[in-house]
Nucleic acid binder design. Structure first.
Lengths: 251, 251
DNA sequence: TTCGATTTGTTCGTATGTATT
DNA sequence: TAATACATACGAACAAATCGA
């Protein structure tokens, strides 16, 4: 690999980071699809003209970032949105009794329109962008707990429509991944407490003078490019939001 | 290092993990104090009878878990509770305008007593344990935002008293670390929305029918041993709770 | 200021073990 | 069984940062 990017005077970028970049770019370009194996370490080493150790070092960080998954004897794979992964990294709601289950999903609304001042204010999304609006309810133990109002710019999602959403199997991010090649790898969330709007309260079986948890979420794909925006309302009568599930492996 | 722990039939524990264990035990035993350097990689390698590469592998995970900090040319150090670290890993409140500042702290109460049913229910802390109760207010921009009700078993904190708390410099975790050798390395938090109790509302300048963010926090030291329990109430009129500041380095 | 010793950071190479197909 | 792929471990060499003589 050409040791090109040395921004004059500064210390040169380590080889393993250049390799990491290269892999990330290939991932973003859809060169290897979710669920597929990427080339073996030996192959990558040959392609990049570096040692296997350097490849491992590059892949290590992508594995830590849950972008790739290694399996001894099989290969290294592009991470997919399985239920397990969702439950652990993208769904932070648990029962106050400690229960941790996968939610049922119910599509309540779908429409297409242009983004407005609210989107710009809440998420920094430029006004006038073509977006789809999705209202989705999540139930736990057959009771409504989370209401998601999703805004997704349609640019990266060709021919996104209601039936696609309604007939999907698995999670919404799995749909993005399988159908549109958009891979959500990280989310950022900002939480506050507030009284829910009347329509939301009605859906969640709350009164409007009861406190609810409100979340603004931005979902990112490779290279921290944002792909989806969400307002969530959560009835925390019997459930909680978990933060720092961490346990960074480090005993 | 003796390859002892091979639970019969299962794959043997990797060497680097045994080394990691050994380092963690030494840390927990206070062999190296926060801020101090641990022995050099070459030294550790000699002591443990393994190669430097294996030492690096062991230390890598501890660095990822923010238990150790490496500095090229200087050495590897036990992490300390600086303001920067606190702001990033243990204080998740930011202004809705995006501002991120270090809070002022004000001690509102201190007493010692025995733990009760509430502690057992909320945190699984055994009844009748000797604990200190600390009420601490955090202000942002000179306005009250977070009220912490802290419960800490006094077993690991010899001669903990109010004046120690009041006259401390820096954060509470820095106090634990500097004065009692107790190093908080990880926290787990559970969030919900609720109406604040009257006394809390008064302190935070809220009405009791306004929604507030409530957090149950458990702070852990090495080996996931819990050292402190906390109830926090947050006025989210102008502030939010940030989750997944992540950016796991993985571009 | 210079220099040398120390320490971590990067890269390479090799050998062997374990899991999968 | 054999081939493939990742996992572990060792060693060597040099680069870069730090610090004290």
């Amino acid at each position: 690999m050409a040791a090109s990017d040395t921004p004059s005077g500064l210390t040169p970028t380590p080889l393993y980071r250049e390799v990491q970049w290269r892999i990330t770019r290939a991932l973003a370009a859809g060169e290897w699809k979710p669920g597929e194996a990427i080339p073996s370490e030996a192959e990558l080493a040959a392609d990049c003209g570096v040692s296997i150790g350097t490849i491992r070092r590059a892949v290590d960080e992508l594995v830590a970032g849950r972008i790739l998954v290694r399996q001894q004897g099989r290969g290294t794979f592009v991470a997919t949105h399985t239920e397990d992964r969702t439950l652990f990294y993208f769904f932070h709601i648990a029962g106050k009794d400690g229960s941790r289950e996968f939610p049922e999903s119910e599509l309540l609304g779908f429409r297409k329109e242009r983004s407005n001042d609210g989107d710009e204010h809440d998420f920094g999304l430029a006004r006038g962008t073509r977006v789809a609006r999705v209202r989705n309810l999540l139930k736990l133990g057959s009771r409504p707990v989370v209401l998601d109002d999703i805004t997704v710019p349609t640019e990266r999602f060709a021919r996104l429509d209601e039936s696609t959403f309604r007939s999907r199997e698995g999670t919404i991010y799995a749909l993005y991944q399988a159908r549109y090649g958009v891979n959500v790898v990280r989310i950022g969330e900002r939480l506050s407490a507030a009284h829910p709007p009347a329509d939301v309260a009605a859906i969640l079986g709350m009164r409007t003078n009861q406190p609810a948890l409100h979340i603004r979420r931005i979902a990112y794909s490779y290279n921290d490019s944002p792909v989806e925006y969400r307002h969530s309302w959560i009835n925390t009568a019997d459930h909680e939001y978990l933060s720092d599930l961490w346990k960074t492996a480090a005993l």
